[in-house]
Design a binder for these strands. Structure first.
Length: 465
RNA sequence: GUCCCCAUCGUCUAGCCUGGUCCAGGACGGCGGCCUUUCACGCCGUUAACAGGGGUUCAAAUCCCCUUGGGGACGCCA
């Protein structure tokens, strides 16, 4: 068998959604795992609904996910002449014919057929008329069945009699989808088509065109769709957001890819995969054939895993960007990339996303004077008993010549010994004092990131509260 | 209505092709615990499923049929 060539062929009528992204991922994986090629084709023949923004958004999303395509992007709209050429050939060879039935007539046929319990379809009345105007229809064989081996669903067979004589060329002269895909896939040398479930019904029709043209039929695979929590087709209501929405929400692209891959694909018990691992392990044999529900909770867990493993420097860059996005470029200058680089490691095991991490960074990046204090925490821990202790600690920290995690720990141990009290007695009061809430990373590492000046300023302010 | 497809814990899934090793394994979540200066992380334990009914067979989650449920398609959209 020769080199495999797969493709992703979105129509630019909207953003790249999570479902489309997964389809793209599987196609990409299929090509990469076999050392093949992955092509991108933009199906922009619907001039009404296709937009440049959508095209850009799709390309950006693919880039963000790391799904790099080979060769040039093919824009279907540029290939109309070739499509028409094929249609003409089909007519000449007797595989297609002109039909001048009006829309109303065809609608009536369909309605009639449905009433009689048959599949609504065009009745083929123009088949042998030898017309030369109107739409061009494909002459679907009246008998027999068209079968194919779906690489994810197994054998699928459809009676030819079930199929309509589909329109190949509209009355305005433009080619239709089913014809265009076949011609493009053939011309691009596509050997493996992996696409959404909603195309299963189109496949037999397309196969018929391949055969009529005497072309090799590629391999087809149809991946089930992604459902919302209510098991209904994923929609905007559920967070069937565009891929770039996930970027805005502070998720890591490799986490999105990982989660998407595990939605419908598996490799034994493994949950976390690097891109390379996915590429080496991927096989359509392990693609599931039933629809799956997008579970945000599990996705967040996956993202958290990647947050923990991520390079703090990279996280720092992202935090800077997100911060600037949030408060504006000018204001964001008050916090440096280096600040974030010191904060990130403390928050890595605690943050589910960049946005989450930025939020948790707040106590670190405001000045002592503006640190918000949680009312309940203050009431509970900054009491008349603890304040004097904090005051004393201030003095001891001030006396420190070297401000390090070790020296901080030493000075506190000593303090506890002198007072004959447990660490528990002062831990939460100190925490509330320096970050304003009862939750934070370890005390001494937090102090280190805060710096001596900020630590003392906060402790002092807390005593005055 | 007609055709096509699907059906294992709440969710993602392994197992199904090549029946026995499955009183069904892993993961997320939930619950309980450990660790501990809080919160997380981590670790340990626990919870929970073969849609239903018929076959075939010594033996079925695995093969066959039916029912039910879900989805998709039926366009001069892609």
């Amino acid at each position: 068998m020769g080199k495999i060539v797969s493709r992703f062929a979105p129509s630019p009528t909207g953003y790249l959604h999570i479902g489309g992204a997964r389809t793209a991922l599987f196609s990409w994986l299929l090509a990469r795992s076999q050392g093949g090629e992955f092509r991108l084709r933009v199906e922009d023949t619907d001039r009404e609904r296709s937009t440049q923004e959508a095209t850009d958004a799709i390309i950006d999303s693919m880039k963000w996910l790391g799904l790099v395509h080979d060769d040039e992007i093919v824009f279907q709209s540029t290939r109309v002449d070739r499509h028409n050429e094929v249609i003409d050939q089909l007519v000449e060879a007797g595989h297609a014919y002109y039909c001048d039935c009006s829309k109303e007539q065809v609608d009536a046929m369909r309605e009639k057929a449905q009433k009689e319990g048959r599949k609504p379809k065009y009745d083929g009345s123009c088949r042998e008329k030898g017309l030369a105007t109107g739409v061009v229809r494909f002459k679907t064989p009246l008998q027999g069945t068209t079968a194919f081996k779906d690489t994810v669903k197994g054998s699928i067979a459809v009676e030819n009699a079930e199929m309509d004589d589909m329109i190949l060329r509209r009355s305005d002269g433009s080619p239709t989808y089913n014809l265009a895909v076949v011609v493009d896939d053939h011309d691009m040398g596509i050997t493996s088509v992996l696409r959404g479930d909603d195309h299963v019904n189109n496949t037999p029709r397309q196969i018929l065109i391949y055969r009529a043209m005497g072309w090799d039929v590629p391999e087809f695979g149809h991946v089930p769709m992604i459902l919302g929590p209510d098991k209904k087709k994923l929609s905007k209501r559920h967070g069937a957001l565009s891929v770039m929405e996930y970027e805005k929400m502070g998720y890591l692209p490799e986490a999105v890819v990982n989660y998407l891959a595990r939605l419908g694909w598996s490799h034994g018990d493994q949950e976390l995969f690097s891109m390379d691992e996915m590429v080496t392990f991927f096989s359509t044999d392990n693609l599931g054939n039933s629809p799956s529900v997008f579970d945000l909770t599990k996705f967040e867990w996956v993202n958290g895993q990647y947050m923990q493993k991520a390079d703090p420097e990279r996280l720092a860059d992202m935090l800077c960007d997100f911060y600037a996005r949030e408060v504006g470029v000018e204001e964001a200058k008050s916090v440096t990339r280096e600040d974030f680089a010191r904060i990130a490691p403390l928050l890595q095991p605690r943050a589910k996303s960049i946005v989450d991490m930025l939020e948790q960074s707040q106590p670190f990046i405001v000045d002592a004077g503006f640190l918000p204090y949680d009312e309940n925490a203050v009431k509970k821990f900054l009491t008349d008993e603890t304040k004097p202790l904090l005051e004393e600690i201030v003095g001891r920290i001030e006396a420190l010549d070297e401000f390090s995690e070790q020296s901080l720990e030493d000075v506190h141990r000593q303090f506890l010994e002198d007072k004959d009290i447990k660490f528990k007695a002062i831990a939460q009061p100190i925490r509330v004092a320096i970050v304003g809430t009862t939750k934070s990373p370890g005390l001494f590492e937090t102090m280190m990131v805060l710096g001596k000046e900020q630590t003392l300023a906060r402790l002092k302010r807390a005593v005055e509260l």
